[in-house]
Structure formats: C-alpha cells, structure tokens
Nucleic acid binder design. Structure first.
Lengths: 334, 334
DNA sequence: TTGAAAGCGCTAACAA
DNA sequence: TTGTTAGCGCTTTCAA
C-alpha cells in the first residue's frame, strides 16, 4: 500500500500542490468550490499529510519533549495526564525522554543531544537534582523551556511551581502557636518538591517564635517503603514528636504504620502530615492529612505556557504558582 | 544562532555532503583521515544532524508511539520506565499519545490520525476496552504494533502478556483443594489485566472440583478508592468469604480496611489476595498477598519486540508471556 | 484565487 | 574512497 502524498491529491483533484497545501492548512483564500473538491479527494484517498515533510519545510515539528529522571517517575506520572490532554488539544505531539540515573554515562548530555536532533519545538523539564545543568545544556540551542516544580524564569524559560515554603509555614505555624515545637521533617530522596524551601519555611516559622529548627530535626528517608518502614519502626522505639512532617505521602504512611507498631497512637500522641495528597494518604489508618497539589493542572499549565512561548503569545507571567491546599484527615488534630 | 547543517560541515571540512553523511551514519568506507577531519568539524561546529530531514529522506523516523487511555494510567506508569530506557538504548524516540475517555469525540480515530501523520515507525498499545477497534484502525496503515496485556498476534502484530488465567487457577486451586469454596472476585473497572481470563481460570478450577463459580461471586469495583472503600464497609457488614480475590491491589487494600472495620480478622476469618503487587500491597496492615507481574520488563520487552518488527529481525515468537509470581504476605495463610 | 518553482536538510544510488 | 545529483513530501514566495 503506497503512501498517498500531496501530489496524488493534487493530480486527482486537478489542482496544484499549492492549492492542496492551502486547503489542508486552512487558508481562506481558496475558493469554496475548489476547497470542497480537494477535501473530497483527501477523504477518498485517505490522505494524511506527512508531518515530517511539513516539519522540514517549516522548521517546526509541533512536538514538545518532556524529560525526567526515572527516580522522579512516581511524582511525574500524575502530571502526564495534564500534559497529554493539553498537548492533544493544542495539537502538539509529546516526546518522552527519561534520563536514567543508573548508567554511568552522561545522560544529561545524551538526552540533550537527542532532543536537539529530533528538533522538538520546546521542552518541559521536571525539577530534580541536576536541573540547572540540564537547563544550561538545552538553553544553548535556544529551545523554549518550562520547568515544573521550581520557580525560575528567563529568556524563553518559564515555570510552574508551588510555593512550598508558604505551605510549610502554614502547617508548622499551627503547632508552634500552641507551643508544640517538637517537630521533625522527613526529607525524601526525590525532589520534585523543593525540600530546601520547605525547610526554609520551617526555619523561618521557628524564628518567628524565637525558636530554632536544627539540622537533627531533619531525617532522610530512603526512596523505598520497604526500607523506610523498618527504619522507622526502629526509630520510633525511642522517639516520638509533636509532629512528623513528611515531604512525601508515602513516608507519611511509613511513619504512621511504624509509630503504631510501637504503640504510639495517632493523632493523640503524635501527629503526622504528608505532602502531595496522593492516594496513599487515604489508604492508611488513620488516614493521612496532606497538602494537596494540583498535579494534573501543573502538567496542563506547563504545556500551555510552553506553547505561548512557541507562538509568541503574550505572557503575563513566566512564573506561574499553583494553589496548594491542606487536606485535614485523621492523622492530625486539626 | 543559525542552525548548522550538513552543508556547513561539508564546506568547512572540504569534503562533499555524501562524505559527511557517511561519517555521521558510521559508514566504514570512509578513509580514517577524512573521517577524523569531518568529526573534528562536527565537534567544532556543534553540528547535530536534523532527524526530521533524515526522516524525510529515509522514510523512517526512529520514533515509536505509545498510546493508552487516561484511565489506565496507574497501570501503565510502571511500564513506561522500561519503555523509556529500552527506547533510549535502541535509539528510538518515544511519542506519547493519551486517549481521553472524557470527551465525546472519537478519540481512537483522532489518535490514529495523529499517529499516522507523525509517521512513527511503530506503536505500542496497552490492552483496554476498545483495543480491537484501535488495532483495526492502525493496522490499515501497516504500522507494526505490539500490544501489552493481551495475547494477540498477526502480520506485524505482536504482544507481551501474562497468563493470568493460569495465575488465577493457581491461586484458587489452593482454596478449593481445602474445601474453601466461598470465593468472590473483585472485578476492577480498568483492564490492563484481562479480567475475563481470570474469571475463566476461576471457573475452570471450580469445574475441576465439580463445583460452579457463579456470576454473583463477581463484584465490580469503582476505580476510586474513595468510592470503593465505603461500599465495601457496607458490604462486609453482611458478608464474609473464604477468599476475596481482587483484580487490582488497590481494591485489596479497600477490602482489608473495610473488613477490619467490621471486625473481620484477616487472614484468620477471611483471606485476601491482590494482583500486580504494587506498592499499595505493602502499605496496608496486614500486608496484602499479591501476584507479582514484571511491569518494567513488559515495557522493555514490548520495545524490543517492536524493533524486531522494524528491523526485520528474526522473531521467535510474536506472543511473549512474562512470568508472574505469587508473593505471600500477611493477608493469606499460605 | 491559483500555479510554478525553489527550498527545507538529509540519504542513496550512481559515477568517477 | 569520494563526489554528483536526484529525490523524500511538504510550504511559501512570487507571478499570473
């Protein structure tokens, strides 16, 4: 089955290439009758214009890339829905690049290479450890970039982010106001959410109450529940706190389960909050209070913003903050 | 910054286009000295060959598409890691298409349209309700297809699947052998895993023991825990069974929590097993026994098989079964 | 309102 | 071992 081209359509419709091209691109200079004739032939021949040829001719591919490290996948997944839908609505294809952190090769350079070769129109990046390096390597090819999860902007660079510092302040303040200052923060390995900003928010709030949040109030979690849970079981044999503030819901579940294992009742003796409000938070007992983040929207907004760069549309702000919301469940008193 | 092309390299290196082309394509007819000279210029000019132009010239894009409905995302996500990694290793780009089930538009046709236009070399499909329709609409354009989650094959069609029927038989047999025949199956809305095959397996096993598995032993779950859980809380006020066999882990957690809410002790009074062995299964108490499925591998194998179609490599079997394994945890006695 | 023709950046015969 | 040249399937001036 030979692929049908624009030539076939032109010949069959008795018009020139240019006319067919105008029709498929919705030009309004074509006479209605001619247009109809062409459209009929397109339909009859089942002609699908070749995006590749068009890409070569226009130097635009109408595809955008999303790139993220494997390790971030759990967080990224919820945004992909928004990205996919919005891409489709705006007529963009989505190219997915994962940067594997396992190999010893320089994956940032590798991915940049592929990105540039594939001539995507723009790229969406997810905040991660070497985000700056990644941005630097891409920006050289003046590809528009939108970063999800970190406030940043510049020539052809925008971002969608959450003000986690404020979110953290909001949470911690309630406790400090009541004199409950034995708070620990569970620092997750992943970092789509900027943990340093959370910590900053906590510190500031402590300061506000003339207290100080120290480094030993920060515990690092492994990325796997299988490891986190037994570690916490051990930990809570000797510790308990007013509040355990987890940078990621999954750790919150581990804390809840481990604490209860040690007979610590939640929320009476200890309170726990998580971040991201994933489905984990409703599946444990007691259910986990968590900070909700509109992940789908973040993906959608990222695509929208990127296309604004691509179409030279007016951009009100290159840094778009999305709203978080505290969801109170049973692991906290309020 | 003007994009540097193969012409620039040729001129700068004092050779012809063809020679540069040979170098970047790893042809071994080029004299080592010439090759080095060209390579130097490529390096110096930071030349990145334009995949689009190459695609037009070769009628190959070295990109494959993955398409899946939003509703399946939770299941698909774990396979994407394997797809991304393998794609990168084999030098293929991954194009992601989500079929939104919310809009009333015909998304199957829509996605097929984009797929064809973008001239991807092949496509990976995830089993779902209208998989047959999707296959039909794509196969017309003789694009190689690999389906994940359903045993199927044909000219240019292959699949990666799990023999869930056997898996189900294996689970259920243990109970029937001990006279425990009060078993219900929780049928999930999603269907990356073929529930009808599971049910078939259960039925066959019942038959083996001269018993019959009836339709009212099948309960349908909503896709959201928020709905599933309260429904089960209600359900287990009046019911209990020897075994609750869940088509998806998440439902297993709902069952465990809901049953305990009603004072049913697990696994003593009732046993529960899930499928897919997701991280949900280790986060509940008691932990959920589940059927493990190598999701990452399935993604990787899918890409590998697809590329075999694309390169006309020898294919031993177009239908590749992956191994499942029962993971015993605390929600079952054995 | 339409058509002719040049060009987008490569690959792949074919010739040298 | 290298170069010449004709495409690949479109878009886009420019002319008519």
């Amino acid at each position: 089955m030979k692929k049908v081209t624009i030539y076939d359509v032109a010949r069959e419709a008795g018009v020139s290439l240019a006319t067919v091209s105008r029709v498929i691109n919705g030009s309004n200079v074509v006479r209605e009758k001619t247009k109809q004739k062409v459209l009929d032939v397109i339909e009859r021949l089942d002609f699908k214009p070749n995006d590749i040829a068009r890409g070569l001719a226009t130097s635009k591919t109408t595809t955008i890339a999303i790139v993220f490290p494997q390790s971030l996948f759990a967080h990224v997944k919820d945004m992909i829905g928004g990205i996919g839908d919005t891409g489709r609505h705006l007529d963009y294809n989505i190219n997915m690049y994962t940067t594997d952190d396992i190999g010893d090769e320089n994956t940032v350079a590798d991915v940049t290479e592929r990105l540039v070769k594939s001539r995507v129109d723009g790229v969406i990046l997810f905040n991660n450890d070497n985000i700056d390096e990644t941005i630097d390597s891409i920006v050289k090819y003046n590809l528009p970039i939108v970063v999800i999860g970190k406030k940043i902007s510049g020539e052809n660079i925008g971002s969608i982010y959450i003000d986690v510092k404020k979110a953290a302040e909001e949470i911690v303040d309630k406790y400090l106001a009541n004199g409950k200052d034995d708070i620990v923060y569970i620092l997750p390995k992943q970092n789509l959410i900027k943990s340093d900003e959370i910590i900053e928010g906590i510190k500031d709030t402590y300061k506000k109450y003339d207290k100080v949040f120290t480094t030993n109030q920060i515990l690092t979690s492994s990325s796997h529940y299988e490891n986190t849970y037994p570690n916490f079981v051990e930990y809570f044999k000797k510790h308990r706190h007013d509040l355990v503030f987890c940078g990621y819901d999954k750790d919150g579940v581990a804390v809840i389960n481990a604490a209860q294992e040690n007979g610590i009742s939640i929320p009476e003796e200890m309170e726990v909050v998580g971040m991201l409000n994933t489905s984990y938070s409703i599946m444990c007992k007691p259910t986990l209070s968590s900070m909700n983040v509109p992940v789908y929207d973040m993906g959608a907004l990222a695509v929208r913003l990127l296309t604004k760069f691509l179409h030279d549309e007016k951009i009100d702000s290159k840094e778009i903050a999305v709203q978080y919301m505290f969801i109170k469940r049973d692991s906290t008193n309020e």
